[in-house]
């Protein structure tokens, strides 16, 4: 990359870190851009952000759950609480794309109703773009950008079973929102279809007895210790409509984040998101054959997590290996 391009990238990164809206928007557009020049610039930007602006102090949160459960309204209520606490919030709102046209209707923004005069909130809607389980390929790179500029980054996505696996592997804290009166979440949990979230929420507690019953059913169905270890999964009731339970939810989220930091797990987790993202992309491109060629999923993820390299460098070098059929571990280790 030429010197002037490098300056551009570092200026852009600095502006993002300051939370400048125009810079954030430009960076997100850039990450979306598949053209060669844009991809190179993206790679440089992400590398720069990861080396200069990632202190792992901020919090990456995923909110998922079935459609119509009130995730967006809940997110809006949480945003209000965080803003009151002086935290800056970036949101990636993911909606499914149409399998027929590839187009998408992204309606979370209208449901979220944030105060758009507020410079401390930034919402980008994304389409799942028909791939990658629940999340499109752009989500992790966009998270890297958002994490550089905000105290809290929230990914909101529809999930009704295995679909939310993606989000749980890309977030520090995953929060599953269940519908009162619907036994689905309980069944999914019991059957192991639902990845155990860090926090379970029954929204619409204004529904009274129905919500109460779902609350206790979920409590019973849960093996209260999270598979990560050292975390008791809380089950909370909220009502986005009248705002009750939202402060408590924000507290529990902060508590989980703190516990990750105290146990020094945050950096390790973040590394695993990147490994997971690269693995997914390679699998998508080359299939399980390609993954096998790289030594299989387990070895690949371990290798990726042990490296301290930027996203696109790792990805590109592995891609090259798949294409060339040559697996030269030494070279990639030392790169």
């Amino acid at each position: 990359m030429s010197t002037s391009a490098a300056i551009q990238v570092s200026d852009l990164a600095a502006a993002i870190a300051k939370g400048e809206r125009a810079a954030l928007a430009e960076a997100l557009n850039l990450l979306d851009d598949r053209r060669q020049a844009a991809r190179q610039k993206s790679a440089a930007l992400l590398a720069h952000l990861q080396s200069e602006y990632s202190d792992n102090c901020n919090h990456l949160i995923g909110i998922t759950g079935p459609p119509g459960v009130g995730k967006s309204t809940l997110s809006a209520a949480l945003i209000a609480v965080w803003r009151k606490r002086g935290l800056r919030v970036g949101i990636l709102a993911v909606d499914p794309s149409s399998p027929f046209s590839g187009g998408a209707l992204l309606g979370d923004r209208v449901r979220m109703q944030t105060n758009s005069e507020d410079d401390g909130v930034f919402v980008r809607s994304l389409s799942s773009r028909g791939q990658f389980g629940g999340l499109s390929a752009e989500v992790w790179p966009m998270c890297i950008v958002m994490l550089a500029g905000f105290d809290i980054v929230l990914i909101e996505t529809v999930g009704v079973g295995q679909r939310e696996v993606d989000v749980s592997r890309l977030c520090d804290t995953t929060c599953y929102v269940a519908q009162p009166g619907s036994g689905d979440s309980v069944q999914f949990l019991k059957a192991g279809i639902l990845e155990v979230p860090h926090i379970l929420v029954v929204n619409k507690k204004d529904m009274g007895a129905v919500a109460q019953r779902t609350l206790s059913e979920l409590g019973n169905a849960l093996n209260a210790e999270h598979p990560d270890g050292q975390w008791q999964v809380p089950v909370l009731a909220t009502s986005a409509l009248n705002g009750s339970g939202i402060e408590a939810l924000a507290d529990v989220m902060a508590h989980h984040h703190q516990s990750l930091q105290e146990r020094k797990q945050l950096a390790r987790r973040r590394g695993s998101y990147q490994a997971y993202w690269i693995h997914k992309r390679l699998e998508e491109e080359f299939g399980s054959f390609g993954i096998d060629k790289l030594g299989g999923e387990k070895a690949l993820l371990e290798q990726l997590q042990s490296q301290d390299m930027d996203l696109f460098k790792q990805y590109d070098s592995l891609r090259q290996q798949c294409c060339n059929g040559e697996v030269d571990k030494h070279e990639s280790d030392n790169d």
């Binding site: 149409s98 998408a104 309606g107 209208v110 389409s127």
Partner: peptide, 13 residues
């Protein structure tokens, strides 16, 4: 219609 035509539509209400 925009979605059906392949656009990503951000609907703002």
């Amino acid at each position: 219609k925009g979605r059906d035509s392949g656009f990503e539509i951000v609907y703002e209400g």
